[in-house]
Computed example of a mutant assay.
Amino acid sequence: MNLVNKQYLLASRPTGEPSVDNFRLVETPIPALVDGQVLVRNHYLSLDPYMRGRMNEGRSYAEPQPLNQVMVGGTVGEVVDSRSPQFQVGDQVVGMGGWQQYLLVDANQRGVLQKVDSSQIPLSAYLGAVGMPGVTAWYGLLKVIAPQAGETVVVSAASGAVGSVVGQLARLRGCRVVGIAGGTEKCRAVVEDYGFDACIDYRQHPEPQSLAAALQAACPNGIDGDFENVGGTILDAVMLNCNAFARIAVCGMISGYNGEPIPMRAPQLILVNRMKIEGFIVSEHLPLWPEALKELGTLVASGQLKYRESVAQGIESAPAAFLGLLKGRNFGKQLVRLI
């Protein structure tokens, strides 16, 4: 086929904020397939905050992204060549295809590709509401926070791919849901499009006490559950309003991704309020994915679960789109369209 694959490699590890100079675009010829291999043309690449952590060399829950190798990332696409009986040309698949136009894999590796059906669910949604972000929201809310009808749940980064799903799932279970997001437009969408009861613009409350006061007004019965994506000042303000036996699902700590210190101002509240604070990594709970995806897929197909996408065009746009994601410039799920 004489195809050439454009790929982004991690060229260097960032010190502080990453830049486009940390990435390198290369062109690699695609070899002829051998028995058992499948070639996928990636249609969409998912950009996610976890990628920032993997760019570092330090200890974390996952191995660091190796230098001079294709950046890790989820993809959806179409099989364009196959030497495997498990996949036919034209099959639509989701996998960890990375920052590249094509993915050449051994289809005998278990779980490396999963077939998906885009007849009722858009293909891109398998990287968002019906993919890893959606399952992250589902697991953190249902298995860590475990909300009861009538309780109040707060969601930071509420307009994002994960936070927006958390709030909608909590509302479906009879909770009062309060979001925290950056900017008037995002807060409006959180309430009007995603159905949250209220949303607080953290940009208007740079100090914990100010944000805590805004949360107190929006959560008159206190906070029973918090889905935490940010940490830092936001988590401090939430903790000041938590009820006894509150549960906090720690999904991310965006405020410290570039090495900033994120001290907890009042850790004594964990004891005073007998709080549960639990971090989780959704890839460690694969047995629950089918249950989560069944509910999420049904809700998206029926129009009950809303989602929004920010789509950058072309593989060349990936680094700038990723840096924008880290600064909150995206609205909803950040994708790169590769076709």
Rank of each mutant, 00 (worst) to 15 (best):
M96G: 14
G195M: 08
Y257L: 03
N108W: 01
N330A: 11
F280S: 08
R265C: 03
L104D: 09
T15I: 15
A266W: 14
K276F: 06
R337C: 12
S317M: 07
W138H: 14
K186P: 00
Y50W: 06
F196K: 00
L33G: 08
G95W: 13
C251G: 06
D193A: 11
G98S: 11
V105W: 11
A107Y: 08
M253D: 00
F196V: 03
K186T: 10
V144Q: 03
G256V: 00
S124A: 15
Y8V: 04
N330V: 09
V79R: 00
A170D: 04
M132E: 01
E309H: 06
G259N: 13
E185H: 12
D48L: 03
Y126I: 02
G183V: 08
L335D: 02
C199P: 02
L127R: 07
S82C: 09
Q268T: 09
P122Q: 08
L127Q: 09
A157Y: 00
Q168F: 04
P261M: 13
L141M: 11
Y126R: 02
N5W: 05
Y61W: 13
S310T: 15
S310N: 12
C187F: 11
L172Y: 03
G232L: 03
P133K: 07
I281D: 10
P66W: 11
G297A: 08
Y44H: 10
V89D: 04
R337I: 02
G131V: 07
V38P: 10
I339T: 14
N258G: 05
G195F: 09
G77V: 02
F245A: 09
R83S: 04
P319S: 14
L335H: 10
M51W: 03
L271W: 11
A237Q: 06
T15D: 15
V336N: 01
V190K: 04
P49Y: 01
R173H: 13
K276S: 15
T75K: 11
P319W: 12
K115F: 06
P206G: 05
A321G: 12
P31K: 11
C251L: 05
D197G: 06
R59M: 15
L211I: 06
A312V: 02
G36C: 08
P319N: 14
Y257D: 00
N273E: 12
L127I: 10
A212C: 08
C251R: 03
D201N: 15
W289H: 10
V116G: 04
A237M: 04
S302Q: 15
L25E: 12
Q109W: 10
L3C: 01
N273W: 00
Q109G: 10
Q88R: 15
S12D: 15
V177I: 07
D48A: 02
V162Q: 00
T75M: 13
E57C: 08
